[in-house]
Design a binder for these strands. Structure first.
Length: 296
DNA sequence: CTATCTGTTCTGAC
DNA sequence: TGTCAGAACAGATA
């Protein structure tokens, strides 16, 4: 389940590998996985790779970009001519960087490098968007989604624009359970189930606590713990509890450092004697220590 | 074998 | 305008 740290891990690697390359062809094996006219991307140079929340944006020379959302099971794998970074052991590779039955889109560069977009559940997508450089419009280009419009629905980036002041305002503005607010992409971009669970555990705040009932002191704690778990996710190159891999097919190791996520029935790491419990909140698995995270 | 669960985001009903 | 179930899917697990 790629969240901010997983997508950022991919972004960094992708940026090193594909900036400067030119797209020769895009093979669409599953039509729903690619939205828009692929011709707009052909013969274009890659000039950058950005990330907004859980979304990647591959900027092309000219007026278009490719936006990529991995949703739950998406993977991006690079087959490069110069192969792996020197430090990468071959034993770490869990996913072959070749076409498989879950490959939905294949991007081929003029130098022979290949990018595979694999997605078991077919929820993810790549779409052509027009970026801000576009000045002249016609009937066709008007209909292409604009990056600015998509991004206007995104909340602030936790590791960039989110401040404690903004965070407090966000919490105060809703009576919903605080965990749902952390995961609301329109309020804060990039936080998903894993990091929301762990941030609240470290903050000793119950996931169901109404956001507007979180005190000033508590909100400061959550703010800092949220940044802490996201940075840990980055340090461990993402969480691979299910099928996240980086562009080289390697798993991250954040799953070895989870505090509560997926640890139902295990003892609380705070040595409080409590067990980690699971409940469903907003339709998603929610893990917490009843002893450490009281709902007062 | 069937039923249930997994988790991100969008859609449509109320 | 907000809330929430259900859908989009396929595979792992019970």
């Amino acid at each position: 389940m790629p969240e901010l740290p997983e997508v950022e891990t991919i972004r960094k690697q992708l940026s090193d590998l594909i900036v400067g390359l030119k797209i020769a062809d895009i093979e669409i094996l599953h039509p729903k996985s690619f939205i828009g006219d692929k011709k707009l991307a052909l013969q274009r140079n890659i000039i950058g790779v950005r990330r907004f929340g859980k979304m990647l944006v591959i900027d092309l020379e000219g007026d278009y970009s490719l936006a990529v959302h991995l949703k739950m099971t998406g993977q991006i794998l690079c087959q490069t001519t110069d192969n792996l970074p020197a430090q990468a052991g071959k034993e770490q590779i869990t996913e072959n960087r070749e076409q498989n039955k879950h490959t939905r889109v294949i991007t081929i560069f003029t130098n022979g490098d290949i990018l595979f977009f694999n997605d078991i559940r077919k929820f993810g997508w790549i779409r052509i968007v027009r970026n801000e450089t576009m000045k002249q419009f016609n009937n066709v280009t008007m209909k292409i989604a604009s990056l600015k419009e998509i991004l206007s629905k995104f909340g602030p980036e936790p590791l960039r624009d989110l401040t404690l002041g903004k965070f407090r305002k966000i919490l105060k503005s809703s009576k919903k359970p605080v965990k749902l607010i952390l995961m609301d992409q329109e309020k804060i971009a990039g936080v998903g189930n894993i990091y929301a669970n762990d941030a609240l555990f470290l903050s000793k705040i119950h996931p169901q606590k109404p956001a507007d009932k979180v005190s000033e002191i508590e909100s400061k704690v959550i703010f800092h713990k949220l940044l802490k778990v996201l940075k840990e996710g980055l340090k461990w190159k993402g969480a691979s509890k299910t099928n996240f891999v980086d562009v080289f097919g390697r798993k991250g190791s954040m799953q070895e450092h989870f505090y509560v996520y997926g640890r139902e029935g295990e003892m609380c790491v705070n040595q409080c004697g409590g067990k980690i419990e699971r409940m469903t909140l907003g339709g998603r698995g929610t893990f917490y220590c009843r002893k450490c995270q009281q709902l007062i």
